[in-house]
Design a protein around this nucleic acid. Structure first.
Lengths: 199, 199, 199, 199
DNA sequence: TATGAATGAGTGTTCATTCAT
DNA sequence: TATGAATGAACACTCATTCAT
């Protein structure tokens, strides 16, 4: 119901199915609150049988999170490379982000909620990817300020506000909602660009 | 480092110390990722000794979360009862919220991150309290629209944007940051009221 | 060494082995005095490994006790249905009972000693089965009185005397004893029918 | 509700109260199924406070059981020393036994059910006392045979039948029963002496 | 005399993982 | 490829017992 496994690096159908099951359970009961038995049960399989296809539970979390981190970063790179204005770049990011969250709420939950249960190098790798993404976002905002589209402001806080608004959507945004994700993204961008104040 | 146990209903010093230790560990490794031994170790105590003072691990999570939920709700009631304008009410909420998050980052993390590991009635109780808080927030925003301070807009999305911005601060806001929490709250309110757009 | 698992409803060989080990330990040190580690040790297994085959410690006690309760009841039904005289029925019951106790002293000990540690519905179920058995016994004695084989007497006390004599055998009757169980049963029946008094 | 602490060797009022509480709980949930907390709760005391008066849990079981074992043995000695006929001796034993069981059902339950959880020397001491009692009983029966009151029979089985009948009364005999204990003892003796058979 | 607090071992049970089949 | 069985460590929690107060 929720991962993004296409293109190069695609795993066997089995692994994909396990990752999907794990994504669902991790989203619902958390990484440490989910047992391998739970994941197996989700697939009609015994816990031990999972190890035919995977190496460890942490591998599952890492695969889910790292896959998302990577494609998120790739999207940021594409946006940065495009010839759009800063405002259009942010709009693109918001739209894509919300579309993806609505389509993959479980994966989003794991990505924003459970990633921190990774350990050591894997944790650092994800942190670094997130940091690069954040830097990209700030660069866009800074460019907006530089070219006079945005007022002078604290770029770091602006970025955190943007991210906070967008990332928290995984808590409530569902594919069957009555509002179109593009509409929501538009509204959020409008809030951020022009504010609530009348006149 | 993190609870809010003052006034009536205050527990014994022992229980308070255990709740603080639990708050720290739950914030760092999550509820299911924290063992009673971890909490005991944090206090230089054996896991079993904790049970002289508490009844169960879930009691700890509940005590931490419910205490915050209640005082959060009480603050909302006070704000709603005050004679301020909607804008001032939101400003008060933002300021108090950020001040509390900065002062209690661990408690905030548990409150926003781990509450969902509660079960049954306790979970429902917290959900209901959060829903009442959200309703209060929307009432303020709606009042702002009604009296012409805000433009007409989707109240639900506006509330979610506000909450998303504020609640995500527990991920980065620390007491030793260089920026004053009141300043940050002011900047966030400015973003929300007037937007980033220049001119 | 001691259960009666034949016929339909027979468990896997593993479960049977665990039940046998549990029967031995429960008989020796009592239900609450036996740990899952003890049962595991009896089988050269770790305590946790038992849970591959069973669900709980109480399940073990229930399986042991309920299995005996059922077959005991079935035997009573068969005896009641047979065309024998009351005296012959009692004789059959005594003989079968002592033969079973001698062959399964551990199971008998658990059945007569540890059944009360069952809880809730399981306890009630066993109590009810025992009550039905007792009622059967009284019916036989009453029939004996009615047809003039026995003198008029308090049926309840007669039943309790019979049961007390029979059931207490689990404390001393062992398969390797020098006396044949049929002989012992015969002697007991003779005591009960004609008494010790000379002449 | 149930011990027999009079005469020499009487303990402090506190110890007596603890022994009574322990007797009640041991009877209901068994020795290993009863915690010191349970016993304390029965007295409105903390578990630790019991140790002001006693030395260990096993001491409690031993005190309860050994006290009964001793007075039981003393009674047997008195009966043996009396000038009665064997039949009268048995009758006295039965009457006293049932009267005591009816008056002290909890103590009786512990004595007949839980004594085996004693360990080492204490266990042996109780076993020996019971063996001496049994020998006394057999001597009486043998005397009855020798003087022609009883038919020739297996003394050991006769003793076991007598004991089985009497000792099992702790399972059902209660002080508030409608039948007088003397009556019940009389009926049991009649069963044993003259049997059920009519004519 | 009793308490409140603590200990350290032990409870029943679940965990992620392995491996012969 | 999947299972059934097992492991050994860990889990939340309770135990009998101790001891300063």
């Amino acid at each position: 119901m929720s991962t993004t496994n296409t293109g190069p690096g695609a795993q066997s159908r089995h692994v994909t199915a396990i990752l999907d099951a794990a994504t669902r359970r991790f989203a619902q009961t958390g990484y440490h609150g989910t047992s391998m038995r739970d994941i197996g049960a989700e697939m009609g399989m015994h816990a031990g049988s999972l190890y035919v296809h995977i190496r460890s539970k942490e591998d599952l979390l890492d695969a889910i999170v790292w896959d998302i981190a990577q494609s998120t970063e790739r999207r940021m790179e594409a946006v940065l490379a495009a010839g759009d204005t800063p405002v259009d770049k942010l709009r693109t990011i918001a739209e894509e982000h919300l579309r993806w969250v609505a389509a993959n709420p479980d994966a989003a939950t794991v990505y924003f909620h459970e990633w921190r249960h990774l350990k050591g190098e894997r944790l650092e790798r994800v942190k670094a990817a997130r940091a690069r993404w954040t830097r990209g976002l700030r660069d866009i905002i800074q460019a907006g300020i530089d070219e006079g589209a945005f007022k002078p402001m604290d770029v770091r806080l602006a970025g955190l506000a943007f991210v906070g608004m967008l990332n928290s959507t995984y808590r409530w945004l569902r594919p069957d909602g009555d509002l179109d994700t593009a509409e929501i993204a538009g509204t959020f961008m409008d809030f951020l660009l022009h504010g609530w104040a009348a006149g």
